[in-house]
């Protein structure tokens, strides 16, 4: 019991759990775009940076309340999601991937060359507003809203688009509209995550939201299992925590991290929980258990 208390009073553990939660929100957003709707996005970190910069600039210059800034960070990111979505979501597959990649670079370069964002120096001195309770409260809200979306008419439409876009269109789904909407919601969560990140780390620079960060988030989703919400949670938890917990092997940790990924993709190409319905598993398990008892 005391060990558990020690664990939760250690600021180092709190810090990494908080940052994991922040990544989780972004990853859940990407899961809606890439996992459920099946649209490639390599520019998710760009939406994070839009949320991060929006909320930080509001906090630093206009001194508006944090919750408003957090929300606005998400909304502005969502607006850019729509803006990017309309022209680019007519594309599919690799072409869309390249477009989002380009968008990510544009955002980064704009932030580097704009005066108010501090250019390549970044923004320092952002007040710390994010805490672990707030982050996990938002994580829970995100998970609930994603479940609601996934099980709604809209969500089923998105899955239909992923499975077969032409068939979905034939069934009367306005595919472009649905895709843009999914993009906006996903970007909204990325924006929220970016805003939380900025108010946690207290220093942001365009380099923090480069291509590698986008790819990292995509990894979380793919390892966990595309389209699976519990999968995204598990994937993010493992990959975000692994570099920290592998610290004791020092120089070899990135090697092990890489090996873990190769193994994963070889043995479970659909991700840890890809294509697994946890409710179904639970039901099967109970049935089996009952049968054995009888």
């Amino acid at each position: 019991m005391e060990a558990i208390f020690d664990f939760f009073s250690n600021p180092y553990y709190i810090q990494i759990l908080t940052i994991t939660g922040v990544y989780l929100i972004a990853a859940l957003g990407l899961n809606l775009i890439t996992g459920i709707t099946g649209q490639f996005s390599f520019g998710h970190a760009a939406f994070m940076s839009i949320g991060a910069y929006t909320s930080s600039l509001l906090t630093l210059y206009l001194h508006t309340p944090f919750f408003l800034n957090l929300l606005l960070g998400g909304i502005i990111a969502a607006l850019f999601g729509v803006l990017l979505g309309f022209p680019s979501l007519r594309l599919t597959g690799d072409y869309l991937g390249i477009t989002t990649l380009g968008f990510g670079e544009i955002v980064r370069v704009v932030f580097i060359n704009t005066k108010i964002t501090g250019g390549a120096f970044g923004l320092a001195g952002i007040p710390r507003e994010t805490n672990i309770i707030l982050v996990y409260l938002i994580v829970v809200l995100t998970i609930i809203s994603l479940y609601l979306i996934k099980n709604s008419r809209f969500g089923r439409g998105l899955v239909a688009i992923r499975e077969d876009e032409i068939a979905a269109e034939a069934m009367g789904i306005n595919t472009l509209f649905y895709k843009v909407e999914a993009f906006a919601v996903g970007s909204f969560f990325a924006g929220i995550s970016g805003a939380l990140y900025a108010h946690l780390i207290q220093y942001i620079s365009p380099g923090d939201f480069g291509f590698s960060r986008s790819f990292e988030i995509l990894n979380f989703v793919v390892i966990g299992g595309l389209g699976s919400i519990p999968g995204t949670v598990v994937g993010t938890a493992i990959l975000a925590l692994a570099p920290e917990f592998l610290r004791f092997v020092q120089e070899y940790r990135m090697l092990i991290y890489g090996a873990l990924m190769v193994l994963m993709m070889t043995f479970r190409p659909r991700g840890l929980l890809g294509g697994v319905d946890l409710f179904q598993v639970w039901r099967n398990f109970r049935h089996k258990g009952l049968r054995e008892k009888i």
């Binding site: 600021p11 180092y12 940052i19 620079s205 923090d208 570099p243 920290e244 020092q250």
Partner: peptide
């Protein structure tokens, strides 16, 4: 406290040193 030149890890590493 090795952060592997990685800015996202640096915050956690600093926190760890302080604990």
């Amino acid at each position: 406290g090795d952060h592997g030149s990685n800015s996202s890890e640096a915050a956690s590493v600093t926190q760890k040193l302080i604990t």
